[in-house]
Amino acid sequence: MGATVILLVILAILVVIALWIVGIFNGLVRLRNAVKNAWSQIDVQLKRRHDLIPNLVETAKGYMTHERETFEKITQARNLAQKASGPAEQGAAESGLSQALSNFFVVVENYPDLKANENFMQIQEELTSTENRIGFARQAYNDAVMVFNNKIEMFPSNIVAGMFNFTKSDFFEIEDAAEREVPKVSFS
């Protein structure tokens, strides 16, 4: 009689522990998926930027008749960014595109008619919003990584994370020191 009661109590405790582990495990999986999803969001926004550039070039061409070189640079940088694979190559190509775009907008300063064009203003709004989106997507990715990593490191979820080999994710950071440097842009 006494033995069965003790057995039942032990069984109940085991069940509770198992449920608790399942709960934490599911939480970890959810957070890991959030990290993955946040990462794919960055790609979605980068693609959005690539898609906008032909429109931009098309609209500006009518006004900027003597700037073929600038257009070529942008188109080239865009094609390069589209083809790039792997984080390192992609990062370099995207920052090349950013550079080409910023050069382009410096040149645009010389064309007040283009600046006042409704279509151009719309594309410009889309483009700048896309830059914001890329930034916010990266920020959201880092936020997701932060929550996930904390969960892996903190007690008691770190025990479950260790049991099932959850590994910490990396933050989004620009590795190359040269890229962090502010390129000189002159307004003359």
């Binding site: 830059e131 890329i134 932060m146 933050f171 989004f172 620009i174 962090r180 000189k184 842009v185």
Partner: peptide, 21 residues
Amino acid sequence: AAAPVGQASKTGVPTPSRRAT
């Protein structure tokens, strides 16, 4: 556009900067 990405964060999470609108 020229601003650095991942600028000044105090500690922990780097904050990617955005192109101002």
